[in-house]
Write a protein that binds this DNA or RNA. Structure first.
Lengths: 148, 148
DNA sequence: CTGGTTGCAAACACTTTGCATGTCG
DNA sequence: CGACATGCAAAGTGTTTGCAACCAG
């Protein structure tokens, strides 16, 4: 319990299978992007992914692929108060693995938090050595009018 | 308890006093921007503020003023998964008035949530008629290394 | 073969900055 | 008067798009 980093790099074969299952063409770029995201245990920005691939494909291709992965719910987009978005794999494993993040305002380091309860959170974060903690909890949904 | 909109428009005099207390020059633009933010009960984007002022001052001035207000902790910056930031007044009243937001993924409507407890949240949001709710809880702070 | 995919360059949206001018205190 | 504030235009980011060449199925 508490804090744990979920780290599960995909083999190329596993990546190909995931793409297959989601009806996505298994091009070199897409396989590599999926592997790259699975290789890190922290959410990546598009340009970080681009650099991890050593620019093997164009930046716009990374953006397009990320968009596609997001639509297929392979990845989750995060907003950690930076000028850009970050993405992490959704481990479709048991149930959609719900967790959150702590990001250091100073060095930008990002760590995962596995529990989902405010009090537990605060304790877990303190245990990590974080100070001057702030949190931001935002909801989205369909309002009464829009929820058809 | 539950949901409530905190709405407290500032008179020009009150706005001037706040600026005074924070050592900010009381120029026409700054007074108007502060009033505009206090007049709405939902967080505003920079260009919404600009339009509310009927372009009485330049967009870059709004950006610069917002930056200054943020530094003085007069306003809070929010990130509601849009391509831009939103800002709302910090009611310095009793203690820093802590609350969150629900935003409709469809129409973009934003409402305030006053309580700060996940379970209460969920119920409150459901009571508002929101469906397909998602939330995002992110922390920032100084990690053990950076927290001097 | 044919539709999806890519690279490239250009376009976008939001935000920041440089500089000359204008205003507050 | 001097410091700060402003308008304007230009530059900077991160992201999106149009198009022709290309590749997977």
């Amino acid at each position: 319990m508490g804090i744990k980093c979920c780290h599960s790099p995909l083999t190329e074969a596993a990546a190909r299978e995931i793409l297959e299952q989601n009806g996505i063409n298994k091009t070199k770029g897409k396989v590599e992007i999926l592997c790259a995201i699975s290789r890190t245990n922290r959410p990546l920005s598009v340009s970080e992914i681009h650099e991890l691939l050593e620019r093997a494909c164009d930046l716009s291709t990374v953006f397009r692929t990320i968009t596609q992965f997001k639509e297929k719910n392979l990845i989750r987009e995060l907003n950690l108060d930076e000028a850009f978005a970050r993405y992490e794999l959704i481990h479709s494993a048991p149930v959609s693995h719900h967790h959150h993040h702590v990001r250091c305002r100073h060095c930008g380091d990002i760590q995962n938090i596995e529990d989902c309860d405010l009090a537990v959170f605060e304790r877990a974060i303190a245990r990590l050595g974080f100070t001057e903690t702030e949190h931001r909890l935002e909801f989205t949904g369909l309002c009464a009018k829009c929820g058809k």
